[in-house]
Design a protein around this nucleic acid. Structure first.
Length: 802
DNA sequence: GAGCATTGATTTTTT
DNA sequence: ATCAATGCTC
């Protein structure tokens, strides 16, 4: 028997594989060779199908584990798939499959193969390349625009970076775009693109998009490598195929070999012998077109692969009929789609509750009170998600959750790895790993301050460019740069010595030890401690904590990773998002954007902020492009179909926003058009308010700082009456709530002497004095971190914690 | 060169 | 409202 196959008893394994599958799922799992397209509606069990398909290839079709390549949308999904495969075939086999996102798979393969690559312009990379995130690549684009003497107003670096990214996602290299550029602007853009790319090579860095693009380009120019990989990956599985872009699709086609146009069916069958390609997706859930994902690829798939087996999974096992009807009634309004009807396999379920808050705080209170009621009925917070369109919306939600001691887990948002101190330290690590990285050099050279300013740096950069050496190398040779002052030269040389010392340590210390050493030897910790103790910066404590956290992350990594070295640590943190780190089981409600919720499911879902301009977002409305609006609608569809049992939809009648045109001001809102697309009899307002279905204010809203003036009626769009959901008085929390509303209640939360309070910036504190009364009340608060401060509760963001 | 004050730009989703 | 970039002073 071949060691590359597993020979399980046909009977039991077959049973395990087929158990619980419906006819269509079974068909997909047990396909033989060739290409297949699985159109899988939300909740139709596509993850199960993919997993079992992989195991079927291993066990029944006796394929080698190494021959299977499975592409998922997130690293978390990859981890889960590997776990599920492992539970069926054991760790020895499971670890030999290649499972990951496009980016992580390409990064892994490039680590081994990039030495073979040379671009058309002759650019090359070394094995120890680093991966640039958005910030790194943004600052490189900016440098490039400046160096080319272009007007930053006309060629805004932000836009240029975005344009380059879009080109790369469409599969165009700098050379290819240059030959296509016709207009003046495109000409300049190609100039920037070329210089930017050269800059990346000089820094021995790749951006996100390069991981796939460069790998494709390498496969194009190296037929040997291509055949090698085609031989190896005989079975390719792709999840979330509707969100694949041209560059990614090209990679798939390279690995699976193109089908020659005029080839007989017989030859085609031969071509696919002991090979397979299965793509799984749902056009209605395509939500990444802004990243150049193109769901038309899925529509054209059968043309590219002629003998494709088409399988539709239309049985939904996730949601109640009510939820599915809502989803279907919304998505029906899209024109660009494949007709598909989800069949429900569960009961009718409850109607969808809709709530209109006075403002975003009131809206959040409704959610929190509803959460408490769910908890009282024995429902876990961890089975519940609050989904929103933009990250900024998490703020008001968090505030109210904290006040009510409701544990929550925020996913995405300001990501841990985006924090300044974390990026600083990672820049050190990148520079230690790859001394050519100029962006990391520039980030670390004066952090903490080493007395090196702009002019000294300009001299160093000039010297490095003239001699075609890295900035770090130039720093080593600083005493040979005449323009530098003796002090500056010494400072550069010292820094170079520091990095050299750390590079040496990196060869025999673990990543976490290296982190500790670099933090102390660079003076970074000392700087933060000084800032913290001098009370100049109250956030310094928090930043020190974040750095401890990073060391913990490194220690965890060391205990879990196959190869716990600096290289894999850096690759990992470059590609792993917060979403991938979501812990299971923790009893906390999950907060995330609709985009982050893709692929997840929850018993209870709150969709918040259903307002015109927010969801659908202004950008998609202002673009006047039906396609953009349809994508927002798909996003709504994704949100609705995350829910298994209960779905809530909320919005606020007014919202403090800096999105809808005027910054920092409060605007009255119009309910989202998506609400009016739902059949009214699927919705219900709150039963606790049957007596006052009026939109007129009842009392002053105690959660907002201004008297309520509902102009809801006037701001209604000129759409017919059915556009108005039949809701909804103001939400009145249960009476046990601490500060029940009265007419004379001030417009802020009142505190008493001795109350423990929390401030977003100063942290924990205690009320030591109350000055004045009523509307004019002021508090003297002693903060643990920064001593006493007088605060006006009308403005300070204070939250009572006891 | 560092620290502070002012000015200007900002407006989605993320591997 | 908030932050980054710029300008001014020591």
């Amino acid at each position: 028997m071949n060691t590359n196959t597993i020979n399980l008893q046909a009977g039991p394994m077959e049973d395990t594989l087929t158990k619980g599958l419906n006819q269509h799922q079974l068909e997909a799992v047990s396909l033989n060779w060739g290409s297949s397209l699985v159109l899988a509606g939300a909740g139709s069990g596509k993850t199960t199908v993919l997993t079992k398909r992989a195991v079927y290839l291993l066990s029944t079709l006796k394929q080698a584990p190494e021959s299977i390549l499975a592409v998922t949308f997130t690293n978390k999904a990859a981890g889960e798939m590997r776990e599920r495969v492992e539970s069926l075939v054991g760790p020895q086999i499971a670890r030999r499959l290649m499972i990951g996102t496009f980016h992580s798979i390409c990064a892994r393969l490039l680590r081994q193969e990039i030495h073979r690559y040379k671009s058309k312009e002759g650019l090359t990379w070394k094995t120890n390349f680093v991966i640039y995130d958005e910030t790194d690549s943004m600052s490189l684009v900016k440098n490039t625009v400046q160096k080319l003497n272009l007007d930053e107003k006309v060629f805004a670096p932000r836009e240029m970076r975005y344009a380059i990214s879009a080109l790369k996602n469409d599969g165009l290299t700098a050379a290819q775009f240059t030959s296509e550029a016709r207009t003046y602007r495109d000409g300049k853009l190609s100039e920037i693109f070329n210089h930017y790319q050269a800059g990346l090579a000089r820094n021995n860095a790749l951006d996100f998009d390069d991981l796939i693009l460069i790998f494709n380009d390498l496969l194009d120019q190296d037929p040997d490598l291509r055949s090698e990989l085609q031989e190896r990956f005989r079975h390719v599985l792709v999840d979330e195929f509707q969100d694949t872009n041209q560059s990614q699709y090209k990679l798939i086609r390279s690995l699976c070999r193109e089908e020659p146009k005029d080839i007989t069916d017989e030859e085609l069958t031969k071509l696919w012998h002991e090979r397979s390609l299965m793509v799984v997706g749902d056009v209605d859930q395509s939500i990444y077109s802004w990243r150049k994902a193109d769901f038309r690829i899925i529509l054209g798939f059968q043309k590219d692969y002629r003998q494709t087996r088409l399988i539709k999974l239309e049985d939904n096992y996730r949601s109640t009929a009510s939820i599915l009807e809502v989803a279907n009634s919304i998505i029906q309004n899209n024109t660009e789609r494949i007709e598909k009807t989800l069949r429900c396999n569960r009961g009718q379920g409850a109607k969808i509750k809709v709530y209109a808050g006075m403002d975003e705080i009131d809206e959040a209170y409704f959610v929190v009170e509803e959460l408490k009621r769910l908890q009282a009925r024995g429902i876990n917070l961890s089975d519940t998600a609050i989904l929103y369109r933009t990250n900024a919306q998490s703020r008001s939600m968090e505030e109210v959750l904290v006040r009510n001691h409701t544990p929550y887990l925020m996913i995405g948002g300001t990501r841990f790895y985006d924090r300044a101190e974390i990026k600083d330290v990672i820049a050190y690590l990148k520079l230690i790993y790859n001394g050519s990285d100029g962006q990391s050099f520039l980030r670390t050279i004066n952090t903490p301050k080493r007395g090196l300013g702009k002019s000294s740096l300009d001299h160093l950069v000039e010297y490095a460019e003239k001699n075609n050496i890295s900035l770090l190398h130039a720093a080593v040779l600083a005493n040979k740069i005449p323009a530098l002052s003796a002090r500056a030269a010494k400072s550069f040389a010292d820094f170079a010595l520091l990095i050299e010392r750390l590079q040496d340590l990196a060869t025999h210390k673990s990543v976490s030890e290296l982190l500790e050493l670099l933090l102390s030897q660079s003076g970074y910790t000392r700087k933060l401690e000084e800032e913290a103790s001098a009370a100049k910066d109250e956030t310094a404590y928090g930043r020190l904590e974040n750095l401890r956290e990073l060391i913990t992350v490194a220690q965890e990594f060391e205990s879990l990773a196959d190869e716990p070295n600096l290289e894999s640590f850096l690759t990992r943190i470059s590609l792993v998002s917060d979403l991938d780190a979501v812990k299971h089981g923790e009893d906390a409600v999950r907060l995330m954007t609709l985009h982050s919720s893709k692929g997840l499911e929850f018993k209870n879902v709150f969709l918040v902020g259903l307002e015109e301009g927010l969801f659908p977002h202004v950008r998609s409305i202002n673009s006047h492009s039906p396609a953009a609006l349809e994508e927002e609608r798909r996003l709504m569809y994704v949100g609705v179909t995350r829910a298994e049992e209960r779905l809530y939809i909320t919005y606020s009648r007014k919202r403090a926003s800096f999105m809808t045109g005027n910054f920092g001001s409060t605007n009255y809102t119009i309910p989202s058009r998506f609400l009016s697309e739902i059949k009214p009899d699927l919705l219900t307002g709150l039963e606790s308010q049957p007596a006052t279905p009026s939109f007129e204010p009842q009392t002053q809203n105690r959660y907002s700082s201004q008297p309520q003036q509902s102009r809801f009626g006037q701001t209604q769009p000129s759409t017919p009456a059915q556009a108005k959901p039949r809701v909804l008085g103001r939400y009145t929390p249960p009476p046990e709530s601490p500060n029940h509303s009265t007419q004379s209640e001030p417009s802020f939360e009142r505190f008493k002497l001795g109350d423990q309070v929390m401030h977003t910036k100063f942290g924990m504190g205690k009320v030591t004095q109350v000055i004045g009364e009523g509307e004019k009340e002021l508090y003297n608060i002693e903060f643990q971190s920064s001593g006493k401060r007088l605060m006006d509760p009308k403005f300070a963001k204070l939250i009572k914690v006891n």
